[in-house]
Design a protein around this nucleic acid. Structure first.
Length: 161
DNA sequence: CTCCGCCTACCAA
DNA sequence: TTGGTAGGCGGAG
């Protein structure tokens, strides 16, 4: 199910499955809709997750470490992608790693390019910090959500490239 | 099997 | 330094 989360950077859209947060979308470039009243119908569990998600999201956007994350439902990804995403969760605010380092950490030192693919397939940007992964030369690589966003997120954490 | 990608290391200008 | 490139790997069709 889908809900909207208000942040200083705009309204994000969160998707929840029966297992937890399954996806997150950046605010639409153009303001699609203004309000959402469907939240009143959400099950208590989902509302709790949403609350945690909102707090965590705002924390990261502010460059801080989220105290707690909602349960994440990464089941949509392949085993390889999930291992990459779990590795990304270990990167703290203001810290970065290269695609090659991630590859090493998950035991696929040569699968560098594949790691990039996994990052691009990340369904939960921001909370699963795909933006803290830079190219080998410590330069910006790419970012499916738009390089602008990657730059902003890093800037909020005090990282410049 | 083929094609593509948020990569890299390497080699030629 | 900049630019082109081939290798390597997982995912999608």
């Amino acid at each position: 199910m889908k809900t909207h989360i208000d942040t200083p950077q705009g309204v994000f859209t969160a998707y929840f499955s029966e297992h937890g947060l399954a996806g997150l979308d950046f605010p639409a470039a153009k303001p699609a809709k203004a309000k959402d009243t469907g939240e009143a119908k959400l099950p208590a569990t989902v509302r709790a997750w949403e609350k945690t998600t909102a707090a965590a999201l705002r924390a990261v956007l502010a460059g801080k470490d989220p105290k707690a994350l909602p349960p994440l439902d990464l089941s949509a990804g392949t085993p390889f992608q999930q291992s990459v995403w779990r590795e990304l969760l270990k990167i703290g605010p203001g810290r970065t790693k290269s695609y090659g380092e991630i590859a090493n950490l998950i035991g696929r030192s040569r699968a560098v390019r594949a790691v990039g693919g996994a990052c691009g397939a990340n369904p939960i940007p921001v909370l699963v910090p795909c933006h803290r992964v830079l190219a080998a030369n410590k330069k910006l690589g790419g970012f499916s959500g738009g390089l602008e966003r990657k730059i902003s997120l890093l800037a909020a954490e005090g990282v410049t490239v």
